[in-house]
Simulated scan of single mutants.
Amino acid sequence: MENNKLKAFTVLLRASQSIQEVNKKSVATFGLNQTEFAVLELLYHKGEQPIQIIGKKILISSSSITYVVDKLEKKNYIFRRACPDDRRVTYAVMTSEGKEFMDKNFSQHQKKIEQIFEQLTDEDITKTIDLLKQIGYHAEKL
Rank of each mutant, 00 (worst) to 15 (best):
N105F: 03
L43D: 00
H138R: 15
A139F: 13
N3A: 13
E114P: 07
T90C: 05
R80W: 10
R88D: 13
G31W: 06
E36T: 04
N76H: 09
Q110T: 04
I51W: 01
Y77R: 01
K141L: 15
S62I: 06
L40D: 01
Y67L: 08
Q52W: 04
V39R: 00
I78W: 01
I60F: 07
I19R: 04
N4W: 11
E48I: 04
I78K: 00
T121G: 13
R81Q: 14
K74M: 08
S96N: 14
L120W: 15
K57L: 12
N3Q: 13
L72V: 04
L142N: 14
E123M: 12
T128E: 13
R80A: 08
L132P: 02
I51K: 01
Q17G: 04
I78Q: 00
E97W: 06
K75W: 06
Q119K: 15
V22L: 05
E73G: 06
Q108C: 05
I60M: 05
E118S: 12
L132K: 08
H109C: 02
E140L: 14
V39N: 00
L6I: 12
T121P: 11
Q34G: 09
D103C: 08
G136N: 13
D130L: 15
F79M: 13
N4G: 09
K133P: 02
F101P: 00
L131N: 12
I116K: 02
N23Y: 12
N76W: 09
F30C: 03
H45P: 01
T66D: 11
G47Y: 08
G98T: 07
K5S: 11
Q20I: 09
L132M: 14
Q49K: 09
